[in-house]
Design a binder for these strands. Structure first.
Ligand SMILES: [Mn+2]
Ligand SMILES: [Mn+2]
Ligand SMILES: [Zn+2]
Ligand SMILES: [Zn+2]
Lengths: 139, 139
DNA sequence: TATTTGTAGATAATAATTTTCTTTTAATAG
DNA sequence: CTATTAAAAGAAAATTATTATCTACAAATA
């Protein structure tokens, strides 16, 4: 969090209240929100905040490597301030997106290297299923 | 291919030349084309084909379970008539999308079950890297 | 405190996908 | 081989997430 100041300074970027709020919100939540969801959550405290600012800030944070973009198959992107390599699981019923925690899938890149001539950088792993809450509902 | 006729009949769907052409093209290629790419490939033989027809047909084929939609992180979707569970690899330089063949990643669903209370259905695994052609170019 | 340069926010633009509506066509029965 | 009917094609408009543009503002620094 404190190193964010340094990171911004390095790149001659200004750490504005809006940018800080967006990053802080992303750090605080495990909900993997979309741009719109971030907007809805911040507009109480930042009534003049524009969606364009959200999008521009997210792009900046991604370039800085402190936020990643998730493609869960919806019509929009989701964002995550947890930049460690970790898989996600999406509920096919309610759309929530959760982390899969404590699992180590880092070996996947090496495993894949055995079967391709690509130079592999990274991967994204998405599981799809039904979350515990939705399982209860459908009983 | 022949069972497509049956499948359509079962659901009271009409197997039109357009639908057949779209499916056949997807079966014939390993390029994982987008809707637009399919459109460009078919319009020589089907000059009246509309992009809306492509989109509607793709949706139908997905519902039938004979085509899957890929989310590689671009601004559009890609489509694949290979519905077996297999990972993909995307070139960060030229954008091509390839299969990772002969690798068996089916154990992933079971592995993930150990770390979540979701009921897991399926997964999507995307690797990102540099394809052999692009590696040569940058030498 | 003045100057510079990057950014916020409003708005318009873009582009993929979906919807709507009318005409056409595939399937089927007579 | 027609006639009938429900489904689909195609054209066009609508929708929606995201991006670009532009001007007023504010953070950094000298
Ligand atoms: Mn996450
Ligand atoms: Mn494939
Ligand atoms: Zn759920
Ligand atoms: Zn390439």
């Amino acid at each position: 969090m404190e190193n964010l100041t340094l990171l911004f300074k390095e790149k001659n970027l200004k750490l504005t209240p809006q940018r800080y709020a967006i990053y802080k919100y992303l750090k605080s939540t495990k909900s993997h929100p979309s741009a719109e969801m971030i907007y809805d959550n911040l507009k109480a405290n930042y009534p003049t905040m524009s969606l364009a600012t959200i999008y521009k800030t997210l792009k900046t944070l991604i370039e800085l490597g402190v936020v990643i973009e998730l493609n869960v198959g919806e019509d929009n992107f989701r964002y995550d301030a947890n930049t460690s390599q970790h898989p996600h699981i999406i509920c096919l019923s309610c759309g929530r997106v959760d982390d899969i925690e404590n699992a180590d899938f880092n070996f996947l890149d090496d495993e894949a290297k055995k079967y391709t001539d690509y130079k592999i950088d990274t991967h994204q792993l998405y599981f799809y299923g039904i979350c515990p809450e939705c399982q209860k509902k459908s009983e």
